[in-house]
Amino acid sequence: MKFDFMYFLESLPQLLKYVYITLGVSVVSMIISFVISIVLVLIDRNRTKVLYPLSRLYISFFRGTPLLVQLFVLYFGLPQIFPEMAVMTSLQAALIGLSLNNAAYLSEILRGSLNGVESNQMDACLSVGMTKLQAMRKVIFPQAIRVAVPSLGNNFIGLIKESSLTFVLGLAEILAHAKMLAAESYLYMESYLAVAVIYWGLTVIIGWLQRRLEYRLEVPYL
């Protein structure tokens, strides 16, 4: 069997048209999961009553079960129990599913980085009269983020690739289109390689942005 290089080239622009779906879903999920993970990590640090064991359970469940299963339960399972939930579109389900799942991972990343911030930084904040929340926002969090950026970058790249699972819900992102392109042309190798090149390109760009961000956050420590 021969590799049809022309077809490979032609499928690149065809697939690029759908990058926005993959990227959009990933970016929005990343942001929502980041917000959720901040709440989780605050609960963790304050050992908030009732919420703390719940948050541990949440993290344990979403890290301990496959994303595919979570998406199935969310999109197909829950509407069978609560029929009102059937109005949920596949896009919404994808965003919710990816966000809930990713938040569990992010909160562990953030927890680790927050633990890495020296305890005297919190002391200093409190001693000048700042509240714990102010301290988190102005001092502790920015310092933790610097440590967390490489892991966050990793996580985001993972999220981009995992977002392809949402095709089971009917969200046709870039890998889904590659599959369908391949099915139509029977040129599987060509289509999959094209999509691989696009994914790779995305991660190269993200890696570059990540290093720029790292450099900027590194300035106070040079």
Binding site: F72, P79, Q80, F167, V168, L169, A176
Partner: peptide
């Protein structure tokens, strides 16, 4: 369009 594995779920949930 959806992954084959998701089709029966969509059918069961009335989508």
């Amino acid at each position: 369009t959806a992954e084959f594995e998701g089709l029966f779920g969509s059918l069961d949930s009335g989508r």
